[in-house]
């Protein structure tokens, strides 16, 4: 019965997916529960801030610069048709601060830091480091997972802000320096149109949510990975795929909640 088999297959996949979501949620709450010690010993978080935040700086800055430059170029081409080149600053800034900054920075963060986190935790599990820690009466969630989680959550908004700031500079470079849009109207229109609470704060909130999502997915996949080479590589791939999809879905939900009502 091929039909029954297909239906069984679908059912099996759905049950599996729901089970994994449940386990990941439980994992997330356990991480929060055991976070106390990483704040008492803040150097644990600082060490992870280095490997997640600082190591992602270059890719974020370079990507931000190019995205901003492309926005400047494309925006100019489009706005020129309506004779409103002076709104280029608004377009670049709003595009970056509201959407591209948080989203692209989070996507890059997932593939740069998230995958590294999964691989590291997965390998720690495969080489029995996590079991060893448990046998030493040290809770691995408190000692390994929680500092990485908080480092990710702290890094993400900072990286997104850097991405947007560098991107706006890239747009300024292309629009004002290269093409010759009026510098005064570029900045003043931007300032008139970008609202601190509405646009910038909402962007920060978005990137915080993305930071939580990406690090939870990355850490859970690593912690849950089968302790083999294929297991770890599969988990790393799943981290990048799942967190990219979750970022884009969450972005829609958050955008609808923040800007949809008006």
């Amino acid at each position: 019965m091929p039909v029954a088999k297909t239906i069984k297959g679908i059912g099996n996949r759905v049950i599996n997916a729901v089970w994994r979501i449940g386990m990941a949620t439980r994992f997330f709450f356990l991480t929060l529960l055991y976070s106390g010690s990483s704040f008492r010993r803040f150097h644990l978080i600082i060490k992870e801030l280095f490997s997640t935040g600082v190591m992602s700086l270059i890719i974020i800055i370079v990507a931000g610069l190019f995205v901003g430059m492309v926005l400047g170029l494309q925006g100019y081409e489009t706005l020129k048709r309506y004779g409103s080149e002076s709104a280029l600053g608004v377009m670049v800034a709003l595009g970056l601060v509201r959407e591209l900054g948080p989203v692209v920075a989070a996507l890059l963060f997932a593939s740069r830091a998230g995958s590294a986190m999964t691989a590291e935790i997965g390998l720690m599990k495969a080489t029995e480091q996590i079991s060893a820690m448990e046998m030493m009466a040290v809770n691995p969630i408190a000692r390994i997972i929680a500092p990485r989680f908080w480092a990710g959550v702290i890094s993400m908004p900072l990286l997104a802000a850097l991405f947007s700031a560098v991107g706006i500079f890239g747009g300024y470079f292309v629009g004002v320096v290269q093409i010759g849009v009026d510098e005064g109207s570029f900045w003043s229109q931007m300032q008139a149109a970008v609202d601190f609470r509405e646009d910038i704060l909402n962007g920060v909130i978005k990137s915080l949510v993305f930071g939580v999502a990406v690090t939870v997915i990355a850490l859970y996949e690593g912690y849950d990975a089968p302790p083999t080479a294929e297991g770890v590589s599969g988990a790393t791939t799943r981290t990048v795929v799942t967190s990219s999809l979750v970022i884009l879905m969450l972005d829609f939900v958050l955008t609808a909640m923040m800007f949809g009502g008006k």
């Binding site: 390998l123 720690m124 080489t127 029995e128 079991s131 060893a132």
Partner: peptide, 8 residues
Amino acid sequence: FQFGALFT
């Protein structure tokens, strides 16, 4: 542990 399981 089998291969030492040192924290890498």
